[in-house]
Amino acid sequence: MSKYAIETKNLKIYYADNEIIKGINLKIPENTIFALMGPSGCGKSTLLRAFNRLLELNKDARIEGEVLIFGKNIYADDVNPISIRREIGMVFQYPNPFPHLAIYDNVAIGLKLNHLVRNKEEMDKRVRWALEKSSLWDEVKDRLREYPASLSGGQKQRLVIARALALKPKILLMDEPTANIDPLGTKNIEKLLFELKRDYTIILVTHEPAQAARISDYVGFLYLGKLIEVGLTKDIFEKPKSELTEKYVTGVLV
């Protein structure tokens, strides 16, 4: 087992004939928050979706190179994308709990359909565990049968995190999870991510350098499909090697 949660080797992604990701080599250590930052349209979300093979939803997307998850190439011929996705949770830019399922069922659905629990009791326990883990339990324990429409944006996003955690993944992919959340909700989620990194490897895509500086351990700066600079968050923000990075973190380059 490799000590890296995710490792990419010369990863290239094309949409039709456009090269979106231009050969990326990246190593993400376990149990850290790795922030992937860059301006809009630089390919952050695309790169993130290569890590759980969600990119395949788009028929035009084509991938070259390797992505190793704990040392295993997930693009090898004998790998089933479904089993990969079970081990990698994902949280999206728009808080998207299923609006037609109750709060409880939103967390339970993945477990139920993947047959990961044997009975109702176990299910209750796991749902509670996931909601506690995403620090939402106290706020929703009395209304588990209500629909997510009654939750605030931040609560919805934590419900989505609970939905992902319920499957006990090893890695959490987060695609700008606070982009549509108010400041208080953002603060709560950032606090939560900080706690979660003890057990999970978190890849956080963000377009806010400040957020990356606040919570991440490592930062990668992505610009026009190229990884300009990777390193410890402190180093990147205090003494960036590249001029581009410096411009970006100081807010000159948007």
Binding site: N52, L54, L57, I82, S83, I84, R85, R86, E87, I88, G89, M90, F92, Q93, Y94, N96, F98, I109, G110, L113, N114, V160, R163, A164, L167
Partner: peptide, 17 residues
């Protein structure tokens, strides 16, 4: 919305589910 399609698949569900 596309985001719900992504959400279902990100949970490791089959196409049918």
């Amino acid at each position: 919305p596309f985001t719900y399609r992504e959400a279902t698949l990100s949970l490791g569900l089959t196409r049918y589910e």
